[in-house]
Amino acid sequence: MVSKRSPPDELLKFIPARDSPYTLVVVYGERSIGDFWTFPDDGTVERVLGAIAKVMPNILTLDDVKKYLESLDKPSERVNRALEAYQSLVKLREVKPGEGLPYKYEPPHLPGWKDMMIGGAIPGLKPNQRNPYFTGGTAKHYRPVINFDKCIKCSLCWEYCPDSVFDVTPDGYFNPALAYCKGCGICAEVCPVPDTIIMVDEMEFEDGYGKFIDEYRAWKENREAYRKWFESLLPKAQVISVRKR
């Protein structure tokens, strides 16, 4: 079950294929379920509860949901959101085995005790190396899009990124290796120039897991097209900081 604005078929472009069939349930909404803890009171919780009552009444009935929500503050507002989802915001899609993003699961290789460094020490990555097993996968909800035309090369994004996502280009820009980005938005937060790093919902993009675009290269190849693309994304940017907008 996901909470998104996109229809199920659109989502399947990003969801790794599975060996067994399953039901994909999309609850129409702004926030992903993963954002519950970030935005606790925007109605997502209630909508998801309404959706569960719709598709899995054996787990939770609509009456159960109402009873629970009526015990909280603003009960009528909460119950209405749940009802809204129950009545009109849930889309179901039966997914067949193999449908979705081609993806082959390989279990990680775990070394034997004779092959490991003693004491659990682990060889570190050399400078400019990245761990191929430690990509963000499909985990992120937003990605940074860089307006290189406005970038002042201050390096703050490069310095603050907790996953060392930014590569320094030969002419001193900072290009995000999107596969490693977890979507935290710190780069956009620390960037001193307004609307230069924007965080945009992952669903706005066609590229995805394992085949992200190279923003810097796209900008180098066609600055005009890149500028237009950036401007089209700007209205959709996540508001990262009140201070900056």
């Binding site: 005790w113 490991m116 003693i118 004491g119 060889p123 570190g124 990555l125």
Partner: peptide, 19 residues
């Protein structure tokens, strides 16, 4: 450059104790 004393959980602890 090495990492020491990592959080390894059930995947590695048996092997480290065996060492």
């Amino acid at each position: 450059v090495i990492s020491v004393a990592p959080q390894v959980n059930e995947d590695w602890v048996t092997e480290i104790r065996k060492q």
